[in-house]
Simulated assay, not measured.
Amino acid sequence: MAAGWWSVLKTVPWSEVIHAAPQVASGARRLWDTVNRRQGAMAADDLAPEAYAHEEDVLGAVVARMEHNEAVLIDLHNQMRSASELIANLADQNAQLIAKVDAQRTKIVWLGAAAGLSSLLALVALLLVSVRT
């Protein structure tokens, strides 16, 4: 069983995986930092209506809240784009690994068939030798 895994691991395009790893890691780190920073900012930022109660006019408070919501929306959109890019990179790597594993599975099936045929021929040869003697 270990030999099967070893052959699968040997055929993985490690140079491509290693080449893409820094990009994936930096994308994941950027995403994590953005999410972490945004959660810290939202914890410090009061989004309750009382935060805008110091405004004398209601229109000014509504405009301030709308601008804040637009900024949050733009930030969330950028986070979504970063996450989508990271997911696309991971999906590409996953597809490459699946293709390699599928190729190995096909090779193992052919190898099993060849081993079965060889065993059958060896058994027939052994029977023929034992019948003649």
Rank of each mutant, 00 (worst) to 15 (best):
V35K: 00
W32H: 14
W14V: 01
A61N: 06
Q79A: 15
A64W: 01
G60A: 08
A83E: 03
E56P: 11
T34V: 13
D45F: 12
A125M: 05
E56R: 11
L97G: 06
P22M: 00
A83R: 05
Q96Y: 06
P49I: 08
A122M: 06
L59N: 10
N69P: 11
I18A: 12
W6T: 15
S119I: 05
T34P: 03
E50L: 02
V72S: 02
L76T: 11
S7C: 04
T133D: 11
L9N: 00
A115N: 03
V131I: 07
R105Q: 10
V17P: 02
L128G: 02
N78L: 15
A28R: 03
A64Q: 06
A51M: 04
S84A: 09
S119Y: 08
W14A: 02
A103S: 00
M66L: 15
W32P: 00
W5I: 06
Q96P: 08
G112E: 05
A88T: 08
P49S: 04
N78M: 14
A64E: 04
V63F: 10
Q104T: 08
I74Q: 15
L76Q: 15
K100V: 14
A51N: 02
L121F: 06
Q39C: 11
A53Y: 01
S84E: 09
T106V: 11
L31I: 00
H68W: 14
V12N: 02
S118E: 03
A99M: 04
G27M: 01
L123V: 05
R30P: 08
I108C: 11
Q96I: 10
A103P: 07
S15L: 13
E70V: 14
H77K: 14
I108P: 05
N94D: 12
L123E: 06
S130Q: 05
M42A: 14
W32F: 10
A44M: 11
W14G: 01
A41P: 07
E55Q: 14
S7M: 02
A3L: 10
A2W: 10
V101G: 00
L123D: 01
W6D: 14
D92M: 08
K107T: 04
A21R: 00
I18Q: 00
D75I: 08
M1D: 06
D46N: 07
S119N: 00
A41T: 11
A28S: 03
A95E: 08
N89A: 13
P49Y: 07
V101S: 04
G60Q: 12
T11A: 07
A61F: 01
V72N: 09
E55M: 13
W110E: 13
V129T: 10
A91F: 05
K107D: 10
V101C: 09
L127M: 02
A95S: 07
A2E: 13
V58L: 14
D45P: 09
L127G: 00
A61E: 00
L97A: 00
R30E: 11
L126V: 07
H77N: 11
N78V: 15
N69D: 14
S7N: 10
